[in-house]
């Protein structure tokens, strides 16, 4: 039965058909599958397959990424409400767009995938000041600050990632909190993330979650890269 469900779910995700995906999940639950099984045996493998697919074919369609990530996030969210015990969380991330930047979609995709992969996400919204990134990361005991910037001047400017790095440095938090960045400017110049003081970047919202989970583990294992 599980095999058939996985196949039908993957097909629906491939066709970016949210209604069909939910039909598959509802039917699976009616047949006795638990919410835990849906997430760990159906949704997460599908997200991992999606990441592998993007790595194989980096030019794949952005609209399709958005739609598949949204399906993963919505299904996971619905299932988490039905979990018998709170799920084991891998780690915690605070995420927002850089000061001056209102482009929220990239962030939206990263959040969807992180949630589906059992990472807790605190959404700080758009146009977030650097101080707030750090204050909220400390308050929520987050391992990673994720700064999204879609424009050259918000990606490289003084008030974005650079300032977050400055504050982490001043407060001696650099071992406890890592910074990741994402957005179009970092794709055009793959060394840019380092020069603005980030610890990591990813070319798209979906593979970003893999890199973020790696950094969470680095912090939890006690420090240095």
């Amino acid at each position: 039965m599980l095999e058939r469900i996985i196949k039908a779910y993957n097909e629906a995700v491939f066709e970016t058909d949210k209604e069909a995906a939910f039909e598959v999940i509802n039917e699976a639950m009616a047949q006795g599958l638990t919410a835990e099984d849906v997430v760990f045996k159906v949704v997460i493998p599908a997200v991992e397959e999606m990441m592998a697919d993007i790595t194989r074919n980096p030019d794949a369609n952005l609209a399709q990424h958005f739609m598949t990530a949204q399906i993963a996030a919505e299904v996971t969210e619905r299932m988490l409400e039905k979990f018998k015990h709170p799920p084991e969380i891998i780690g915690r991330v605070v995420i927002g767009t850089a000061a001056g930047d209102l482009h929220s979609l990239g962030k939206r995709i990263v959040m969807g995938c992180l949630k589906a992969l059992m990472v807790e996400v605190v959404d700080l919204g758009v146009n977030v000041p650097a101080e707030k990134f750090v204050d909220e990361a400390v308050a929520h005991d987050a391992q990673v600050i994720a700064v999204s910037a879609m424009m050259v001047h918000t990606a490289t400017g003084e008030n974005g990632c650079r300032k977050v790095r400055e504050i982490l440095c001043q407060r001696g938090l650099e071992e406890k909190i890592k910074i990741v960045v994402g957005g179009a400017p970092y794709r055009f110049d793959e060394a840019l993330y380092k020069s603005v003081g980030a610890d990591g970047w990813a070319a798209d919202g979906i593979t970003a979650s893999r890199m973020i989970i790696g950094l969470i583990r680095v912090v939890k294992d006690g420090g240095g890269p």
Binding site: T16, D17, K18, A63, F66, M67, Q70, L105, R108
Partner: peptide, 10 residues
């Protein structure tokens, strides 16, 4: 709005 946007991509 982001959700609305994604809902209209198909």
């Amino acid at each position: 709005y982001d959700d609305l946007y994604i809902d209209h991509l198909r």
